[in-house]
Simulated assay, not measured.
Amino acid sequence: MVVIDKAILHVLDVNDANEFFSDELLNLDLSTVEFLIKHIEKTIDSQDAKKGCFYEDSEFKRILIGYKNEEMEFVSFSKEVASSLYKLLINSDGVASADLLICDARIDEVRYLVIFKCNNHQGYVHQVTVDEAGRVNTELVNNYAILPGLSQRMDEFVFINLETLDILSKAKKYNVDGNSIYLIPELLLECTQTPSPTETIKEINKVVKKVTEAYCQDQVAAAAAVKNFISENIQSEAVIDPVAVGREVFQDNPSMQSDYSNAITEAGFAEPVAVNQEATLKKLRKHKLSTDTGIDIIIPTDYFENTDFVEFFKNDDGSMSITLKNIQNITNR
Protein backbone atom coordinates (compact mmCIF):
# COMPACT_ATOMS: atom_id res chain seq x y z
CA MET A 1 0.00 0.00 0.00
CA VAL A 2 1.29 3.46 -0.93
CA VAL A 3 0.41 6.63 0.97
CA ILE A 4 1.62 10.03 -0.26
CA ASP A 5 2.22 12.36 2.69
CA LYS A 6 3.87 15.26 0.83
CA ALA A 7 4.79 15.97 -2.78
CA ILE A 8 6.19 18.88 -4.75
CA LEU A 9 7.02 19.62 -8.39
CA HIS A 10 9.99 21.70 -9.57
CA VAL A 11 10.77 22.60 -13.19
CA LEU A 12 14.35 22.31 -14.45
CA ASP A 13 14.35 24.09 -17.81
CA VAL A 14 17.95 23.58 -18.86
CA ASN A 15 17.22 24.47 -22.51
CA ASP A 16 16.38 28.08 -21.65
CA ALA A 17 18.53 28.14 -18.49
CA ASN A 18 15.54 28.66 -16.20
CA GLU A 19 14.68 27.06 -12.92
CA PHE A 20 11.18 27.24 -11.46
CA PHE A 21 11.12 26.01 -7.88
CA SER A 22 7.71 25.74 -6.29
CA ASP A 23 7.03 27.39 -2.94
CA GLU A 24 3.95 25.24 -2.39
CA LEU A 25 3.27 21.54 -2.04
CA LEU A 26 1.25 19.76 -4.70
CA ASN A 27 -2.46 19.62 -4.03
CA LEU A 28 -2.98 15.93 -3.36
CA ASP A 29 -6.31 15.60 -5.15
CA LEU A 30 -7.49 12.25 -6.51
CA SER A 31 -5.87 12.58 -9.96
CA THR A 32 -2.50 13.72 -8.56
CA VAL A 33 -2.44 10.94 -5.97
CA GLU A 34 -3.38 8.37 -8.62
CA PHE A 35 -0.56 9.60 -10.87
CA LEU A 36 2.04 9.39 -8.10
CA ILE A 37 0.90 6.06 -6.67
CA LYS A 38 0.71 4.37 -10.08
CA HIS A 39 4.25 5.41 -10.92
CA ILE A 40 5.58 4.45 -7.50
CA GLU A 41 4.03 0.99 -7.78
CA LYS A 42 5.35 0.60 -11.33
CA THR A 43 8.93 1.65 -10.58
CA ILE A 44 9.79 0.31 -7.13
CA ASP A 45 9.98 -3.26 -8.48
CA SER A 46 11.84 -2.24 -11.65
CA GLN A 47 14.40 -4.85 -12.69
CA ASP A 48 16.49 -2.05 -14.22
CA ALA A 49 17.01 -0.35 -10.83
CA LYS A 50 20.26 -0.58 -8.90
CA LYS A 51 20.75 -0.80 -5.15
CA GLY A 52 23.23 1.49 -3.46
CA CYS A 53 24.54 3.03 -0.24
CA PHE A 54 25.64 6.59 0.49
CA TYR A 55 29.33 7.37 0.74
CA GLU A 56 30.23 8.56 4.21
CA ASP A 57 31.01 12.09 2.99
CA SER A 58 27.90 12.40 0.79
CA GLU A 59 26.49 15.93 0.93
CA PHE A 60 23.07 14.63 -0.10
CA LYS A 61 23.12 12.23 2.85
CA ARG A 62 23.90 15.13 5.18
CA ILE A 63 20.95 17.26 4.11
CA LEU A 64 18.67 14.20 3.95
CA ILE A 65 19.44 13.36 7.57
CA GLY A 66 18.77 16.98 8.45
CA TYR A 67 15.35 16.74 6.82
CA LYS A 68 14.67 13.38 8.45
CA ASN A 69 15.52 14.87 11.86
CA GLU A 70 13.14 17.79 11.17
CA GLU A 71 15.96 20.34 11.02
CA MET A 72 14.63 21.40 7.59
CA GLU A 73 11.07 21.45 6.30
CA PHE A 74 10.06 19.61 3.14
CA VAL A 75 9.78 22.54 0.69
CA SER A 76 13.22 23.92 1.58
CA PHE A 77 14.76 20.46 1.44
CA SER A 78 13.22 19.74 -1.98
CA LYS A 79 14.45 23.09 -3.33
CA GLU A 80 17.98 22.29 -2.23
CA VAL A 81 17.79 18.92 -4.01
CA ALA A 82 16.35 20.54 -7.15
CA SER A 83 18.98 23.28 -7.13
CA SER A 84 21.82 20.77 -6.78
CA LEU A 85 20.49 18.68 -9.65
CA TYR A 86 19.89 21.74 -11.85
CA LYS A 87 23.51 22.88 -11.42
CA LEU A 88 24.70 19.44 -12.49
CA LEU A 89 22.39 19.28 -15.50
CA ILE A 90 23.20 22.76 -16.78
CA ASN A 91 26.87 21.76 -16.98
CA SER A 92 26.17 18.51 -18.84
CA ASP A 93 25.96 17.92 -22.58
CA GLY A 94 22.80 16.86 -24.43
CA VAL A 95 20.50 17.10 -21.43
CA ALA A 96 16.74 17.52 -21.83
CA SER A 97 14.68 19.82 -19.63
CA ALA A 98 12.83 17.96 -16.91
CA ASP A 99 10.19 18.12 -14.22
CA LEU A 100 11.35 16.96 -10.80
CA LEU A 101 8.79 15.28 -8.56
CA ILE A 102 9.81 14.73 -4.94
CA CYS A 103 7.58 12.81 -2.52
CA ASP A 104 7.62 11.85 1.13
CA ALA A 105 5.65 8.61 1.02
CA ARG A 106 4.93 5.43 2.92
CA ILE A 107 5.22 2.16 1.02
CA ASP A 108 3.94 -0.83 2.98
CA GLU A 109 4.31 1.25 6.15
CA VAL A 110 7.97 2.08 5.41
CA ARG A 111 8.80 5.76 4.92
CA TYR A 112 10.57 6.63 1.65
CA LEU A 113 11.87 9.69 -0.10
CA VAL A 114 10.90 9.26 -3.76
CA ILE A 115 12.42 11.33 -6.59
CA PHE A 116 11.14 11.16 -10.17
CA LYS A 117 13.14 12.98 -12.85
CA CYS A 118 10.65 13.28 -15.70
CA ASN A 119 12.57 14.20 -18.83
CA ASN A 120 10.36 16.39 -21.00
CA HIS A 121 8.96 14.64 -24.05
CA GLN A 122 7.42 16.10 -27.16
CA GLY A 123 3.69 15.58 -27.57
CA TYR A 124 0.63 17.21 -29.09
CA VAL A 125 -2.28 18.69 -27.16
CA HIS A 126 -5.38 20.54 -28.33
CA GLN A 127 -5.87 24.25 -27.79
CA VAL A 128 -9.25 25.98 -27.97
CA THR A 129 -9.53 29.74 -28.57
CA VAL A 130 -12.63 31.94 -28.87
CA ASP A 131 -12.40 35.26 -30.73
CA GLU A 132 -14.32 38.47 -30.01
CA ALA A 133 -17.17 37.36 -32.27
CA GLY A 134 -17.57 34.13 -30.32
CA ARG A 135 -16.13 31.91 -33.05
CA VAL A 136 -14.40 28.81 -31.67
CA ASN A 137 -11.08 27.72 -33.13
CA THR A 138 -9.34 24.45 -32.25
CA GLU A 139 -5.66 23.81 -32.93
CA LEU A 140 -3.00 21.19 -32.40
CA VAL A 141 -0.14 22.52 -30.28
CA ASN A 142 3.30 20.93 -30.02
CA ASN A 143 4.11 20.67 -26.32
CA TYR A 144 7.61 19.86 -25.06
CA ALA A 145 6.73 19.32 -21.41
CA ILE A 146 4.67 16.12 -21.52
CA LEU A 147 4.89 14.00 -18.36
CA PRO A 148 4.88 10.18 -18.60
CA GLY A 149 1.37 8.73 -18.79
CA LEU A 150 0.12 6.11 -16.36
CA SER A 151 1.03 3.32 -18.79
CA GLN A 152 4.58 4.68 -19.31
CA ARG A 153 7.67 4.43 -17.13
CA MET A 154 9.69 7.15 -15.48
CA ASP A 155 13.02 7.86 -17.17
CA GLU A 156 14.99 8.17 -13.92
CA PHE A 157 14.03 7.69 -10.30
CA VAL A 158 15.32 7.29 -6.76
CA PHE A 159 13.80 5.53 -3.74
CA ILE A 160 15.51 6.10 -0.39
CA ASN A 161 14.39 4.11 2.62
CA LEU A 162 14.37 6.77 5.35
CA GLU A 163 14.80 4.14 8.06
CA THR A 164 17.88 2.39 6.65
CA LEU A 165 19.03 4.98 4.04
CA ASP A 166 19.25 2.15 1.49
CA ILE A 167 18.95 3.44 -2.09
CA LEU A 168 17.25 2.07 -5.18
CA SER A 169 17.82 4.09 -8.34
CA LYS A 170 17.58 4.07 -12.09
CA ALA A 171 19.68 6.67 -13.86
CA LYS A 172 20.95 7.62 -17.29
CA LYS A 173 24.48 8.45 -18.28
CA TYR A 174 25.33 12.04 -19.15
CA ASN A 175 28.44 13.59 -20.64
CA VAL A 176 30.07 15.75 -17.97
CA ASP A 177 33.46 17.34 -18.74
CA GLY A 178 34.08 14.74 -21.43
CA ASN A 179 33.21 11.81 -19.16
CA SER A 180 30.10 9.62 -19.46
CA ILE A 181 28.72 9.14 -15.95
CA TYR A 182 25.53 8.23 -14.10
CA LEU A 183 24.87 11.78 -12.97
CA ILE A 184 22.20 11.21 -10.31
CA PRO A 185 23.86 8.44 -8.25
CA GLU A 186 27.45 9.52 -8.81
CA LEU A 187 27.22 13.31 -8.49
CA LEU A 188 23.87 14.11 -6.85
CA LEU A 189 23.44 11.30 -4.32
CA GLU A 190 27.12 10.33 -4.09
CA CYS A 191 26.44 6.65 -3.58
CA THR A 192 27.54 3.20 -4.67
CA GLN A 193 25.69 1.17 -7.31
CA THR A 194 25.32 -2.59 -7.58
CA PRO A 195 24.36 -4.26 -10.88
CA SER A 196 20.64 -4.40 -11.59
CA PRO A 197 18.88 -7.75 -12.16
CA THR A 198 18.49 -6.95 -15.87
CA GLU A 199 22.19 -6.07 -16.22
CA THR A 200 23.17 -9.25 -14.38
CA ILE A 201 21.15 -11.53 -16.65
CA LYS A 202 22.52 -9.77 -19.74
CA GLU A 203 26.10 -10.17 -18.51
CA ILE A 204 25.56 -13.85 -17.68
CA ASN A 205 24.29 -14.50 -21.20
CA LYS A 206 27.13 -12.46 -22.70
CA VAL A 207 29.82 -14.42 -20.84
CA VAL A 208 28.15 -17.79 -21.53
CA LYS A 209 28.08 -16.96 -25.25
CA LYS A 210 31.73 -15.89 -25.21
CA VAL A 211 32.86 -19.08 -23.46
CA THR A 212 30.80 -21.43 -25.65
CA GLU A 213 32.15 -19.69 -28.77
CA ALA A 214 35.71 -20.09 -27.53
CA TYR A 215 35.19 -23.85 -27.03
CA CYS A 216 33.08 -24.31 -30.20
CA GLN A 217 30.09 -25.53 -28.17
CA ASP A 218 26.34 -25.21 -28.81
CA GLN A 219 25.38 -21.62 -27.96
CA VAL A 220 21.63 -22.24 -28.25
CA ALA A 221 21.73 -25.12 -25.78
CA ALA A 222 23.88 -23.12 -23.37
CA ALA A 223 21.54 -20.10 -23.49
CA ALA A 224 18.55 -22.36 -22.84
CA ALA A 225 20.39 -24.01 -19.93
CA VAL A 226 20.97 -20.56 -18.39
CA LYS A 227 17.26 -19.74 -18.57
CA ASN A 228 16.23 -23.13 -17.20
CA PHE A 229 18.63 -22.94 -14.25
CA ILE A 230 17.63 -19.40 -13.30
CA SER A 231 13.90 -20.16 -13.69
CA GLU A 232 14.10 -23.24 -11.47
CA ASN A 233 16.19 -21.59 -8.76
CA ILE A 234 14.34 -18.30 -8.34
CA GLN A 235 11.08 -20.15 -7.69
CA SER A 236 12.45 -21.14 -4.27
CA GLU A 237 14.61 -18.06 -3.64
CA ALA A 238 14.31 -14.76 -5.53
CA VAL A 239 18.07 -14.48 -6.05
CA ILE A 240 20.35 -15.06 -9.05
CA ASP A 241 23.85 -16.33 -8.29
CA PRO A 242 25.93 -15.73 -11.45
CA VAL A 243 28.77 -18.01 -10.34
CA ALA A 244 26.33 -20.87 -9.63
CA VAL A 245 24.89 -20.43 -13.13
CA GLY A 246 28.32 -21.11 -14.64
CA ARG A 247 28.85 -24.19 -12.46
CA GLU A 248 25.56 -25.64 -13.69
CA VAL A 249 25.78 -24.73 -17.38
CA PHE A 250 29.39 -25.92 -17.72
CA GLN A 251 29.25 -28.75 -15.17
CA ASP A 252 30.84 -31.24 -17.59
CA ASN A 253 33.78 -29.01 -18.51
CA PRO A 254 35.95 -27.61 -15.66
CA SER A 255 37.96 -25.46 -18.07
CA MET A 256 34.82 -23.72 -19.32
CA GLN A 257 33.64 -23.31 -15.72
CA SER A 258 36.90 -21.64 -14.80
CA ASP A 259 36.90 -19.32 -17.82
CA TYR A 260 33.28 -18.33 -17.11
CA SER A 261 33.96 -17.70 -13.41
CA ASN A 262 37.01 -15.55 -14.17
CA ALA A 263 35.15 -13.52 -16.81
CA ILE A 264 32.04 -12.90 -14.68
CA THR A 265 34.19 -11.87 -11.71
CA GLU A 266 36.35 -9.56 -13.82
CA ALA A 267 33.19 -7.90 -15.19
CA GLY A 268 32.02 -7.17 -11.62
CA PHE A 269 28.95 -9.44 -11.69
CA ALA A 270 29.98 -12.28 -9.38
CA GLU A 271 27.78 -11.31 -6.42
CA PRO A 272 24.23 -12.74 -6.08
CA VAL A 273 21.47 -10.26 -6.92
CA ALA A 274 17.88 -10.18 -5.66
CA VAL A 275 15.21 -10.21 -8.37
CA ASN A 276 11.47 -9.82 -8.69
CA GLN A 277 10.28 -13.40 -9.05
CA GLU A 278 7.22 -12.73 -11.18
CA ALA A 279 8.86 -10.26 -13.56
CA THR A 280 11.97 -12.40 -14.07
CA LEU A 281 10.06 -15.64 -14.64
CA LYS A 282 7.90 -13.88 -17.22
CA LYS A 283 10.99 -12.86 -19.20
CA LEU A 284 12.60 -16.30 -18.95
CA ARG A 285 9.51 -18.31 -19.81
CA LYS A 286 10.18 -18.22 -23.57
CA HIS A 287 13.27 -18.41 -25.75
CA LYS A 288 13.38 -16.70 -29.14
CA LEU A 289 15.57 -18.07 -31.91
CA SER A 290 16.39 -16.13 -35.08
CA THR A 291 17.85 -18.08 -38.00
CA ASP A 292 20.04 -16.83 -40.82
CA THR A 293 17.25 -17.88 -43.19
CA GLY A 294 14.97 -15.21 -41.74
CA ILE A 295 12.80 -17.54 -39.64
CA ASP A 296 12.01 -16.62 -36.03
CA ILE A 297 10.88 -19.29 -33.57
CA ILE A 298 9.63 -18.78 -30.00
CA ILE A 299 9.90 -21.89 -27.83
CA PRO A 300 8.95 -22.33 -24.14
CA THR A 301 12.28 -22.55 -22.31
CA ASP A 302 11.47 -25.80 -20.53
CA TYR A 303 10.83 -27.52 -23.90
CA PHE A 304 14.49 -27.29 -24.93
CA GLU A 305 15.42 -30.38 -22.97
CA ASN A 306 12.20 -32.24 -23.82
CA THR A 307 12.62 -34.10 -27.11
CA ASP A 308 8.89 -34.93 -27.10
CA PHE A 309 8.28 -31.38 -28.32
CA VAL A 310 11.44 -30.04 -29.98
CA GLU A 311 14.70 -31.54 -31.16
CA PHE A 312 17.86 -30.03 -32.64
CA PHE A 313 20.03 -31.87 -35.15
CA LYS A 314 23.52 -31.09 -36.44
CA ASN A 315 23.69 -32.04 -40.11
CA ASP A 316 26.77 -33.50 -41.80
CA ASP A 317 27.35 -30.28 -43.73
CA GLY A 318 27.49 -28.27 -40.49
CA SER A 319 24.01 -26.79 -40.82
CA MET A 320 21.33 -27.26 -38.17
CA SER A 321 17.77 -28.60 -38.32
CA ILE A 322 14.98 -28.13 -35.80
CA THR A 323 12.09 -30.59 -35.50
CA LEU A 324 8.87 -29.55 -33.76
CA LYS A 325 6.82 -32.54 -32.51
CA ASN A 326 3.37 -33.48 -31.25
CA ILE A 327 1.66 -30.46 -32.80
CA GLN A 328 -2.14 -30.89 -32.91
CA ASN A 329 -3.07 -27.52 -34.32
CA ILE A 330 -1.42 -24.47 -35.92
CA THR A 331 -2.99 -21.01 -35.77
CA ASN A 332 -2.11 -18.11 -38.08
CA ARG A 333 -1.25 -14.87 -36.24
Rank of each mutant, 00 (worst) to 15 (best):
D296H: 04
A263R: 00
V310K: 04
D5T: 15
V310H: 02
K314N: 02
Q122M: 15
E19Q: 14
E190H: 07
V245T: 04
D29S: 12
Y303A: 02
A274E: 09
Q235E: 09
C191F: 01
V310G: 06
E271P: 03
T307M: 11
G246N: 05
Q217N: 08
E59T: 09
R135H: 03
M72Y: 06
T212W: 03
V220K: 03
K282G: 01
D131V: 08
E71C: 08
D166L: 11
E132H: 14
S169R: 00
E109Y: 03
N233F: 02
T138R: 11
V81A: 11
K87W: 10
T43C: 13
Q219E: 13
P195N: 08
T331L: 06
G149C: 12
H126G: 14
D108N: 15
S231A: 10
Y67I: 08
V136H: 09
K42N: 09
K68H: 04
Y182D: 06
S31F: 10
N137P: 00
S84I: 03
D296I: 02
D317W: 01
A82C: 05
E163Q: 11
D308N: 15
D23P: 04
S92E: 05
V273I: 13
E305Y: 08
K288R: 12
N306Y: 00
G134T: 03
N15V: 10
E71L: 13
S83M: 13
D16Q: 14
E41C: 05
L85M: 09
E132Q: 15
R62P: 04
H287R: 09
S83K: 14
V249I: 05
R333A: 14
